[in-house]
Simulated scan of single mutants.
Amino acid sequence: MSLPDPYGDRFSSLLADTYRRLTGKSLLADMPPGATDAARWLYEKAPFGLLAHDTAEDPRFVYANRTVQSFFGYEWEEFIGMPSRLSAPPAKRSTRAKLMKDVLERGYSDHYRGIREGRSGTRFWIEDVTIWNLVDEAGRIHGQAALIRSTTPA
């Protein structure tokens, strides 16, 4: 899959459909009644952070909504293509890598909490995080995504 457009229906559908299949919950539950553009809402207005990386050996971010951009202090152009391991401080990267491997094997993980590092070097906790595999209807894995419900200073 090529890099997604933040407003693209195809990738937002993959995020939402896979999340629903694996967790039984909807990414769009908080979308206002009458809103019709799910991709735009997920990118611009979702009250949670949403990001995804690809399946490369050293996975790179392919999606980061505006909420996540504000958490980490990166703009879309800076975030996209960055190795996802760099979101965690160096001492926490092996723990993060183990979590990603576990998610790959189990499908998803819920209620994760971990330390992350923003562009400025400021560390913060990501809390009540769900991480899941992005799997299309043919069973092909396109990467992994994370829904970050809250953050607090570390």
Rank of each mutant, 00 (worst) to 15 (best):
T122N: 15
Q69I: 05
T23Q: 11
T36E: 12
S94F: 01
G139F: 05
A39S: 13
P47M: 11
A39Q: 10
G81T: 09
R20C: 04
R106C: 00
D17P: 00
E117K: 14
D9I: 00
A29Y: 02
P4E: 05
D58V: 06
S13C: 01
G121F: 14
I148K: 01
W125N: 08
M100K: 15
D128I: 00
L14V: 10
P83L: 03
P47F: 02
A35L: 07
R106A: 06
L28C: 03
E75A: 14
P90C: 12
G24L: 01
S13D: 00
A138K: 13
T130K: 02
A91K: 14
G143C: 09
S120P: 05
R93H: 06
D54F: 02
A52Y: 03
G118D: 09
G107N: 10
T130H: 04
W76F: 08
A146N: 08
T36D: 07
E78W: 08
Y43K: 09
A91C: 07
M100E: 04
N133Q: 13
V103G: 04
F61V: 09
A97W: 03
L22A: 05
S87G: 14
R113W: 09
E75S: 11
S109K: 15
G24M: 04
A46D: 12
I126H: 13
P4R: 07
L51Q: 10
R123K: 15
R149G: 06
R40M: 11
Y7H: 13
R60W: 04
I148V: 15
F72T: 07
N133W: 01
I126Y: 07
Y108D: 11
R21Y: 06
G118E: 13
R106F: 00
L14E: 02
E117V: 14
L104E: 02
Y74H: 13
P90V: 14
T152P: 00
S70G: 12
R40S: 15
R113I: 05
S109P: 00
V62E: 08
L15A: 08
D136H: 04
A39E: 10
I131G: 06
R119W: 04
L86S: 03
G114T: 06
A154C: 11
G118P: 04
T67F: 06
P32T: 08
L104W: 10
E44G: 05
G34C: 08
D9M: 00
Y74G: 01
I115F: 10
S109W: 09
P6I: 02
V129P: 03
L104N: 01
V135G: 01
Q144V: 04
H142T: 09
L14S: 03
F61L: 14
S84P: 02
A91D: 13
E78Y: 13
K45T: 13
L3I: 09
H111K: 15
A154V: 11
N133H: 06
P33N: 05
F72V: 12
K101H: 09
K45R: 15
T18G: 13
N133T: 14
G114I: 03
P83F: 00
V68G: 05
S13L: 04
G114Y: 03
L28I: 00
V135F: 02
E105N: 13
D37E: 11
L99S: 05
A88P: 01
G139P: 01
R96M: 10
M31Y: 02
I141G: 00
L3D: 15
A64L: 11
Q144S: 08
G139N: 05
G107T: 03
L86W: 00
